[in-house]
Amino acid sequence: MSGNRDTHNSVSGGQQQGGVTQAHTVNNLWVDLSKAAPSKPGTWLLILEVVGLVLAALYWPGGPLRQYVVFGLLCTSALVTAGCSVVTGLPDRGRGAPRPQQAEPRDAAQQQCGEKKGNRRKRVARVTFPVLSVLFSIAGLLAFQNVADTGEVPIEIRIDGAQPLNGPRSAPLTLTVPTPEEPREKLRLSLTTVDNEPSTGTCVHKTTAAVTAVTAGITPHAYYEVTAEDTVDFDLGGNKGELRFTFTLQTEANCSMRLAKATGTLHN
């Protein structure tokens, strides 16, 4: 740790000035960090948390970002406390340097007292930050696991059948949800029906559809008044495989419509 002592001397001794002093200080801080790193718990925590984040990114379950808010907050807290832990784990800078000789005895006593208080505070911080960081990391891991197990999973839906859908007697379309990698209890379907030709009259406000489950066990069995831009929610009744629905348009004669978009979200 002689390097550390050099650093203290060079800073507190006031031999150098301005930018040179600052540059030197930064260089020495880096030296301190690199020397202290392997032996300090804060540094290890920081490394482990970064590795954990990389793994989380690799195994990211997907879905809307809002479900990762808690995970994000916990990760940030874990990283910040680990960072604090690294900083508090660094050797003293300036405080341990020799005091000016001309200090009064009373001042020296006060200084000693202050140093004791400072050391106590520092000891507390050295314990508190790593503990907090570990707790935040564990909570973050649990939050991530929770999202992975129960969070929303977007799923592609295949639309089969002839489009456009002309008038009230058009043949139904089939919506197929492939077997999900991560099964959930419910499926939210978002459907968008548009005019086949946007530059002619519109039938959007005269159009509804019936969405009926073909796969057994799904409840409700059907929604009969699904509007042009609508979302419906089905309980999958334990189905974990491929799911099928029919989409039957209800519109006026001469209306030509198209199911433009069908997106699914699996959730619990």
Partner: peptide, 8 residues
């Protein structure tokens, strides 16, 4: 854009 059909 045209609004949805009034249902319910």
């Amino acid at each position: 854009k045209p609004s949805n059909a009034a249902v319910g």
